[in-house]
Write a protein that binds this DNA or RNA. Structure first.
Lengths: 346, 346
DNA sequence: GCTGTTCTTGGAAACGTTTCCATAATTGAG
DNA sequence: CTCAATTATGGAAACGTTTCCAAGAACAGC
């Protein structure tokens, strides 16, 4: 006969399990953690009680004692951006499969939110950190990150001492620009994200490279890094179109920005591809179904998320070994549709 | 002189702070938790040491002792769906502001992932739970949820004993259907989500109501609940169009589905609004910029997320008081564009 | 001036695990 | 057959907080 219940109707603890099974607490712990040197009988007896009581070990106690929380932090500037949400989605699936829970921190491009998240990561003893694209000029954040000493993986972002998974934005920017130059364009506007965020930096680099290889100068006035939040692209495009030397082609981001660009074209009475050529970065329903359909640079977002999660999990598991931190690149793919043409003769 | 450092270079604990400040551990704890009855001198002395050492309390220990983790669970079927990611984004902002961290669980419509997440919520002692739209026929999940005894808020979902925040999908479905009936349509197809998910259930109810008020019968073959994942809409639309009595109007979901519908129309050589009328639910770039632009039923996703988070936080804070669990409804808004017309005369 | 509150602080016992150490029983080598 | 190594279990000390309890100091009422 077991003694009278010490816990009236609360959640059972490992001690309850041990008592009911007539074994020691440490044995229960060992069984639950699949340690070796356990007799089959003991295992069976304990598991029976565990199932009967519906025992679930308390993560706080586990984290406190074993210094691992089975938790992965995920820092992203804006989860409502489909580009990010698709990567996060894939990463989360991978982490979930491995028994980890994802802690989301949306920073909205604010450095104080970034450092606050780092603090949360430390206090909660998270086991690893997924760092999505963000402003690389945030010094406070960078130094806070450096003190963390935790397995990290950057996604479209460079992280000192950690590997990163990235789309080949430079190559993509190069390919698109070269294509437009090949059509005869000489004034190509590039509307991309903030300059200090890796994908934009790389994209601009590819854009320049294509110009250089063609022996053309780059007019930096045509490169328009966009601040966050849509709507800004609209005025930028208007300004460009109404300026003294308007562009004959535009490369723009697909999410949150293509729509504004199309609005701007429409309100200036300009048609693509006849008046101007248009390429967008990041495939969207709109790019596919606009009339005419818009040529797009695309890449596999889910794959990036998956690879990042897997890479991080590897590092979390065998953390001691120093591993290589070379970035992993995924290719971009240029989808030709009907939004580009040779520039009009003057 | 302080005694020699007990912790070589690890993170300082509350004990280190107490020792360095020459006070008791409980005093430090009280200062950090802003308890009353503390002399200003003690407060100042302790805070100085806290700042100097960069002490950050360990959440695992706090959670273990105080049974609160400052963590909110967020269960959503698919975070890559823009409908959800926008709501999650707004909710996360609200929670972050209040000092909570969001734990994301993407269930991908699988009941075992739902119950697994409930288990994680319990084990991690999360303080509250945000439950997004999901299949309400999952009995195991429902009973697991019932045993949880935790502040919850449903979002576009009914949760027994908890309040919910919802868009008025029934009213929206009614309005759109009535509008199409008013134009003269008698065969209106409705492509919506799985029938067991609240927004679809409500939408169909509104659709029926509009028919009833107009004295029309509902042909249930025209109501096509879509399984998850895009592409299914395509074959459904083709089947409808090629059937004996094709619809003269289609109401479809905007995200992940409108594009397939447009493809299906195109490949059947059918144009809107001349051949068929089209309304989409959930405003998207595509609906706005398609030619012709597509009339849309929309509502404020961010507001739903914010209200849900605030409601949950209220419940978390003063949990004892029994509060009312009446659902909070947000209105939908019908945006008239150019995708609908009177049906062709036979 | 005495007594009963209210402030202010310290000491120590939880919270629920994991893990170190000890010990008994079993196995294997020579 | 003996001794060392291995296997299987139990006991108890952590992990880093919060919170209960106690107690001394200050303060008010009479």
């Amino acid at each position: 006969m077991a003694r009278t219940q010490p816990t009236p109707s609360l959640r059972p603890t490992i001690r309850d399990v041990a008592a009911q099974a007539g074994v020691s607490v440490s044995s229960v712990s060992r069984v639950l953690n699949r340690e070796p040197h356990i007799s089959p009988e003991l295992h069976a007896r304990i598991m029976r009680v565990v199932d009967r009581l519906g025992f679930e070990p308390d993560s706080a106690a586990q984290a406190l004692r074993s210094r691992a929380s089975n938790t992965i932090g995920c820092m992203v500037s804006d989860i409502s951006n489909p580009l990010y949400s698709e990567m996060v989605n894939a990463a989360e699936e991978e982490l979930q499969r491995a028994g980890y829970v994802l802690m989301l921190g949306a920073t909205r491009h604010a450095e104080e939110r970034e450092t606050a998240f780092i603090s949360a990561v430390r206090r909660r003893r998270m086991d690893g950190l997924l760092l999505f694209a963000g402003d690389n000029t945030h010094r406070d954040f960078t130094s806070a990150l450096a003190t963390l000493d935790l397995p990290c993986v950057g996604i479209d972002r460079e992280v000192p001492g950690a590997p990163s998974v990235r789309a080949d934005h430079r190559g993509g920017g190069f390919e698109v620009t070269r294509y437009l130059i090949g059509l005869g364009h000489r004034r190509i506007a590039l509307l991309t994200g903030p300059a200090a965020v890796l994908p934009s930096t790389e994209r601009v680099a590819g854009y320049r490279q294509a110009h250089i290889e063609a022996g053309l100068d780059v007019d930096l006035d045509l490169v328009r890094p966009q601040v966050h939040g849509s709507g800004i692209a609209f005025s930028d495009v208007c300004q460009l179109l109404q300026g003294p030397a308007p562009p004959t082609a535009i490369i723009t981001l697909g999410t949150h920005m293509l729509a504004s660009v199309m609005d701007a074209l429409a309100s200036n009475g300009i048609r693509y591809p006849s008046d101007i050529s248009l390429v967008c970065i990041g495939d969207t329903d709109l790019a596919r179904h606009a009339t005419p359909a818009i040529s797009t640079l695309t890449w596999d977002l889910s794959e990036i998320g998956r690879i990042a999660a897997k890479t991080l999990l590897e590092r979390v598991r065998d953390g001691d070994q120093v591993q290589d931190t070379r970035p992993i690149y995924l290719p971009t793919r240029f989808i030709l549709r009907h939004s580009c043409a040779e520039p009009r003769a003057k």
